Amino acid sequence: MPKITYVDHAGTARTVEGDVGSTVMETAIRNNVPGIDAECGGACACATCHVYVDGEWAEVVGPAEPMEQDMLDFASDVRSTSRLSCQIRIKPELDGLTVTTPARQG
């Protein structure tokens, strides 16, 4: 199973295993990762699962689709590597992925 590292705004890292086919958000919820609220349950209808993808992983994860880009308008402190974790599907190539949650979400 691919390992995903979640870093909170204070720098605390938590590494958990994710199931291929699930999302980075679902994995965070199952593992009680703070800072990812996922109020819409993964429907891409809010921005409470906003994360920053680590720069070296941005190309592997890929860009946000238009609907996700629209939802990111509701997130705070959006950056070039911002993504909604509900839209990042875990695949074997993401083993080692690191994402950070924004301070306002923590």
Rank of each mutant, 00 (worst) to 15 (best):
K91V: 15
P63N: 14
P63T: 12
M71G: 09
C86Y: 00
A75K: 07
V78I: 15
E56K: 15
D73Y: 03
L72S: 06
R89N: 12
D70A: 14
Q87H: 04
R89G: 10
Q87A: 12
R83G: 08
A58F: 06
E59S: 13
C86P: 04
I88N: 05
S80I: 05
V61S: 01
R83A: 05
R83L: 07
D70N: 14
F74I: 05
A64S: 15
D73C: 09
R89L: 13
K91L: 11
D77I: 06
R79T: 13
E68V: 04
F74T: 09
M71P: 08
C86D: 00
L84V: 07
E59T: 13
P66K: 00
A64P: 09
E65D: 13
W57I: 11
G55I: 04
F74D: 01
D77C: 09
M67T: 10
V78Y: 03
P63F: 05
P63E: 15
P63I: 08
V78D: 04
V78E: 04
W57S: 06
D70V: 07
I88D: 03
T81L: 04
D54E: 12
E65N: 09
R79D: 05
I90L: 15
I90M: 03
L84M: 07
W57M: 06
I88L: 07
V61F: 00
D70R: 11
S80R: 10
F74W: 06
R83H: 09
W57Q: 06
E65R: 10
V61K: 02
C86S: 01
L84Y: 01
S82A: 13
G55F: 02
V60M: 07
V60W: 02
G62H: 03
M71F: 01
L72R: 11
E59D: 15
R79N: 10
